[in-house]
Amino acid sequence: MSVLQNILKQNPKSEDYLIETLLSLQDAKDEPCISEEEIADIAEYYGISPTRVSSVASFYTLLSLRPRGKHVVQVCRDVPCYLNGSENILEAVKEALGCDIGETTADGLFTLEETSCLGNCDGSPSVRIGKKTYENLDSQKVKEIISGYREAK
């Protein structure tokens, strides 16, 4: 059975599980994004229109219809992090990755995004990579963390 079929089977067949399904599917893939084909399959499974699926997928920022790198790097841009130097962190991340906001590195390993507040303001400035939040960052730590991901690939 395909990855998607397995995920669909995890929850009752009811369209209120659409967001859960989309999140699980993204988590299970090497590249966190939802393809046209998957949208069609999901729509058929729940008996809803593909437009309904894709509009939900584009509404939520954790979901993506655009191909993204293996690790999505999200830098918080809101005030509590800003007050603690997030602008420098963003610059350090850009430099370490060699790409700009919204871009994916050439090796397909990282996509850089900005994010709204991560709810980690007691550890600001914070960055979320994949499903892990890093806190109390400075430029040096950013470098080391990104190198760590590069080495682990």
């Binding site: 369209e15 989309l22 999140l23 920022t61 954790l62 979901l63």
Partner: peptide, 18 residues
Amino acid sequence: AGAYVCGEEFALIESIEG
């Protein structure tokens, strides 16, 4: 799934409904 507005009660309810 990354939407601040979903903290608003009816937006949250809509989100629970998928």
